[in-house]
Amino acid sequence: MNKPLTAKDFATDQEVRWCPGCGDYAILKCVQKTLADVQADPDQTVFVSGIGCSSRFPYYMNAYGFHTIHGRAPTFATGLKIANPDLDVWIVTGDGDGLSIGGNHLLHVLRRNVDVQVLLFNNEIYGLTKGQYSPTSRPGTRSPSTPSGSIDSPVSPGAFALGAGARFIARGVDTDTKNLSPVLSAAREFKGAAFVEIFQNCIVYNKDVFEDFVNKKQAKETQLHVQHGQPLLFASGTKGLKLNTSTLTLEIVDVGDNHTPVSEILVHDETNRGIAQMLLTLPKEGFPMPLGVIYRAPTTSFDDAFWSHHPTQGKRTGKVADALRKGSVWKKD
């Protein structure tokens, strides 16, 4: 009987090179632990990245990996999954790589529902190219490219994914491995494109930008960990989100004796696109940050649909090496 795999079995002998204190270290450890927990097969696992700090990820995973072109990781991953549907394909990208130059490629892998996991590390800044503002940077962000403060309206990765047609959308925090690991497991189990936004601290160029909700001393008040079929409660159950039926918006209410009963708190339904839309677009000021699986509505994946209409039904009819040695594919009858 083979010995069970551990997190160390998914680590390579390469020196991990990110800035000391970077949130990427915690995410790497969490992914390695998660793959060990589910006993993934390294020989059937592939990590594909584009360009950016997060894109060094494949070097540190004991699996197959492709460090590809800026913003094009979804394209490579789609080809891999179609060519070999049995592979477990992960895309690692950042807010710049995935939502700027790669925005169109990310959109299409989500709308097609290709069976891959997309991990988008969001630190609201360009780290690799020395701190320019990114598509997710908040208004007022001071950077080498916006010394007077950004005036751009930022992209919400989750709302973008929902608008693109993603069927699985989740959020996590880099250092909160206790809650991030189950999210990664759920993403891996999902048959289709699973989009996970991970809030990641860039300690050099955008330090503590998420401190308003990741600070452990305030986390109970500032984080809302959603669970399917459970009321949207936070602050140790003393507060919750109630649907205002007049405005069709969510509002914070006190819960308990002499306050709003739990029965009036909105129950999370991860299959409900409307609830997902409200949670993903909550104002940052005054509301807790929704974390966990926010939307999960399975449907046929792109690769399953592709092979179901293909004459070979996904079965191999030849070898790539033979095709390459056959000569020109263009032959006149």
Rank of each mutant, 00 (worst) to 15 (best):
H259F: 04
N122K: 09
S301T: 02
L28G: 01
K207N: 13
D174Q: 10
R142I: 15
T175R: 02
N272P: 11
R56G: 06
L248D: 14
I265W: 02
D254E: 14
W90F: 15
C30P: 01
S246Q: 11
G21I: 14
K332V: 13
S153M: 14
T260P: 06
L80C: 12
T75K: 02
F210R: 04
F10K: 02
R325T: 09
P147D: 15
V118G: 11
W18T: 12
K315D: 09
Q230E: 15
H228F: 03
E189A: 14
N113L: 07
K178E: 15
N258K: 15
K130T: 10
A83F: 09
F160N: 11
T136Q: 10
T317P: 04
S185M: 09
A219E: 13
R273M: 10
S49I: 04
D208Y: 12
G94N: 11
L233C: 07
V109I: 15
D254Y: 04
G256L: 07
F287I: 06
D333G: 08
L232G: 02
P290Y: 09
S137I: 12
P85S: 14
F234T: 03
V46K: 01
A186D: 15
P283Q: 04
G140K: 01
V196A: 10
V109E: 00
S156K: 07
P182E: 10
L119V: 12
Y59R: 14
K319P: 01
D303F: 01
D24S: 05
S137A: 11
T247I: 09
G165C: 03
P261H: 04
T146R: 04
L180S: 05
F168L: 11
P139K: 11
A276Y: 03
S156Q: 08
E15H: 06
Q313N: 12
K29P: 02
Q132P: 03
A26E: 10
T75D: 08
P85H: 08
V114G: 01
R17V: 13
D269R: 12
G127V: 05
T141M: 13
L241K: 00
S308M: 03
L110F: 01
C19E: 13
